[in-house]
């Protein structure tokens, strides 16, 4: 799947600005950012599920086929078969009045044309694959009778039912307890590897994304501000926002007390994320950035390749780069 300069606007509010991404088969891409950064909108773009009020521009290609602006019935052919999605709240995504078995078997019977017994066999195999113990009795249960982690596994099984080549997971672990979340992440990684299925893992949780993915895109205010190999970006972040985000995360080095006996403070990013329609025109991060220069608020920084696959959009990096080139 390939996204080239994809923008989504709701009136004057730009939810996504010229996003470029490339997802190779079988790879795992993480999208991180705070609330309102456009990461969910990006996920919906991949599914062709932008709300009607949103205006989409740019190019969305799936296996070389242009899908931007394609009508609903075209997208529907690709959903579930080529791209599937799982959501944050597994309870909300399951019909509470339907047995889990019926929920999982229905699409198999409808889309794949399987007989009831064949659909049942497939459902059992899928449950086995996503690590649901005792799948036979699970099929007869209702969603409220199983735990949150098990519900998320059911949804993953449901998403896998038509063998998609890309799975979009929007905050799949946010509603779960830490231990359960960890196991779900490991499951997604394993499925991606065994099925050669691409995974887009959307989350605000840096630790979860670090564990789940090989590539990462950091978003702020509708822009992808930095992307590259996960270890590279998280290990040596270049964009001021990524640096701030990593510093703000409580970890080992900012814990405990300093030499003066006072507790160590966390690195913070001043201010709060502005509403979409009040974002600065240039770099979205200007106004909160501590290293701001004059051109930041006015001019949009272009993505700059920094080597080793790392790309960041920041005027400071551009200057440093130009300076190094001149000397």
């Amino acid at each position: 799947m390939q996204l080239d300069r994809v923008s989504v606007a709701f009136g004057a509010a730009v939810a996504l600005r010229e996003a470029c991404l490339q997802i190779e088969p079988g790879t795992r891409l993480g999208i991180v950012g705070e609330s309102g950064c456009g990461k969910s909108m990006l996920g919906l773009c991949l599914m062709g599920m932008i709300p009607d009020a949103g205006k989409v521009s740019g190019s969305i290609r799936l296996n070389g086929k242009e899908l931007a602006g394609a009508p609903e019935h075209v997208w529907r052919r690709h959903r579930a078969r080529d791209v599937a999605m799982i959501f944050q709240e597994p309870m909300a995504a399951l019909n509470p009045l339907k047995r889990i078995g019926d929920t999982v078997m229905e699409p198999l019977e409808v889309h794949e044309g399987l007989s009831r017994s064949a659909a049942r066999a497939r459902a059992l195999a899928l449950f086995d694959e996503v690590g649901i113990p005792d799948p036979d009795s699970r099929l007869r249960q209702y969603p409220h009778e199983i735990s949150g982690g098990q519900r998320q596994r059911v949804l993953i099984a449901l998403a896998l039912a038509c063998n998609p080549s890309l799975l979009v997971a929007d905050e799949p672990t946010t509603a779960l307890d830490a231990n359960v979340a960890l196991r779900i992440i490991d499951l997604l990684v394993r499925l991606s590897e065994t099925r050669n299925m691409a995974l887009v893992f959307i989350s605000h949780d840096l630790a979860a994304v670090a564990r789940a993915t090989q590539q990462i895109a950091v978003m702020y205010g509708g822009d992808i501000v930095e992307r590259g190999p996960t270890a590279q970006v998280l290990g040596a972040p270049r964009h001021p926002y990524t640096i701030g985000l990593l510093g703000a995360r409580p970890g080992l080095d900012n814990r405990g007390r300093g030499p003066d006996g006072r507790r160590k403070r966390l690195v913070t990013i001043p201010g709060t994320v502005p509403p979409l329609f009040e974002l600065p025109a240039g770099c979205r991060f200007s106004g909160r950035c501590t290293r701001e220069i004059a051109s930041c608020a006015l001019q949009r920084p272009q993505p700059l390749a920094l080597g080793a696959g790392q790309v960041a959009a920041c005027h400071l990096l551009g200057q440093a780069h130009a300076g190094a080139g001149a000397s």
């Binding site: 705070e34 840096l206 985000l245 703000a248 006072r262």
Partner: peptide
């Protein structure tokens, strides 16, 4: 809260505590 805001609030709580 978002991570960057969370850090602000945690720092505030530490300040107040001291």
């Amino acid at each position: 809260l978002d991570v960057s805001v969370q850090a602000q609030i945690l720092n505030l709580l530490m300040d107040l505590q001291e």
